[in-house]
């Protein structure tokens, strides 16, 4: 009798395990992009070591970008792989700044969308993974210098756009991922819980 009971227990565990490993994520999320369970966000970065380039950034903005990358490295499992003097094939994040008006067809001052854009991130090289998950091989981050008026705003926006580039969505918590006039320049524990352990 003992053997079948053990076998039954094993069978239950095995069946649950088999079912769950084949399943899609079922919880609401603000991280990554999965085709069968779309989240509010963007594809997550495809590797743990993040290489970046900001060779055309203005001096104030490169300081903020440096801060943002250092913060990412400090707060999360993700690491700065290195700074690329020129954006190469393995560069993950490329940052630009300018006084944008309609760059990429976007309405930067919000006169049509009603959203004055301070910074925007676009994954320009998306990788489809087996099982419907998409990751990002390269993201471009753009900062509108018309809005980058203080160190606080620059750092917050750098943290925010880097967050999108690695897969984080918006939040209502105290985090740089909160939209609008929030001044927080770091990720929340909730943000970090999404990132850590992923790579």
């Amino acid at each position: 009798m003992r053997m079948p009971a053990l076998a039954l227990l094993f069978a239950i565990v095995a069946s649950l395990s088999a079912g769950l490993t084949a399943a899609t994520p079922v919880l609401a999320n603000t991280f990554g992009f999965f085709v069968y369970h779309p989240t509010w966000c963007c594809p997550k970065t495809d590797n743990r070591d993040v290489y970046w380039n900001g060779s055309t950034l203005t001096s104030n903005m490169i300081t903020a970008a440096d801060y943002g990358m250092a913060n990412l490295d400090y707060q999360t499992d993700l690491r700065i792989g290195g700074y690329d003097d020129t954006a190469g094939t393995h560069t993950d994040l490329v940052m630009f700044d300018a006084r944008y008006v309609d760059y990429w067809g976007k309405d930067w001052d919000g006169s049509s969308t009603g959203v004055n854009i301070t910074g925007a991130t676009k994954c320009v090289r998306v990788l489809a993974q087996i099982g419907g998950e998409y990751t990002c091989d390269r993201a471009e981050l753009r900062f509108d210098l018309a809005d980058m008026t203080t160190t606080t705003i620059r750092k917050k926006t750098a943290c925010h756009e880097i967050g999108h580039a690695i897969g984080l969505g918006h939040t209502n918590l105290t985090s740089c991922m909160k939209q609008g006039t929030s001044t927080t320049q770091t990720y929340s524990s909730h943000d970090r819980s999404h990132i850590n352990g992923e790579w």
């Binding site: 992009f33 085709v35 069968y36 779309p38 989240t39 509010w40 966000c41 963007c42 594809p43 990429w104 976007k106 919000g110 009603g114 959203v115 004055n116 854009i117 301070t118 910074g119 925007a120 991130t121 676009k122 994954c123 998306v126 998409y134 926006t157 925010h160 756009e161 999108h164 969505g169 918006h170 939209q179 609008g180 006039t181």
Partner: peptide, 21 residues
């Protein structure tokens, strides 16, 4: 399968900004 709007809305560009209305 995700709906038309789900396909269209997710994975688009993301931004930070201030609402004007």
């Amino acid at each position: 399968q995700p709906s038309f709007w789900a396909k269209l809305r997710y994975g688009a560009s993301m931004s930070d900004g201030q609402y004007l209305f």
